[in-house]
Amino acid sequence: MQPGRLRLMIAALAFGAIAVPAQAATVRIVMENLVISPAEASAKVGDTIELVNKDVLTHTATARNGDFDVMMPPKKTATYVLEKPGSVDYYCRFHPNMKATLKIEP
């Protein structure tokens, strides 16, 4: 193996380690029959939220504090990477009865 190529690989590994912390996880939240479950989920900054919409209706996950507003078409899954810590109440703009909380640790 050429030394240049090895350096590149190490650089890639190091970069990877910074960009994706080892503990980054995917948290799955399901919207089905106009209910968000779990009603309370915990995650960390850097984690990916996977929003699964099992309904035939379009839903949104809209943070009351304005941190995020993700739209999910019917029967589709959307993903969103958490950027800010905090306890965020969110709801669906189209179906305001759909409410849940996301606790995001730093």
Partner: peptide
């Protein structure tokens, strides 16, 4: 039944 659930949401939304 799904429709009922959706429309009950609409009723509350409309009331709001």
């Amino acid at each position: 039944q799904t429709g009922l659930k959706i429309f009950q949401g609409h009723e509350q939304h409309a009331e709001h």
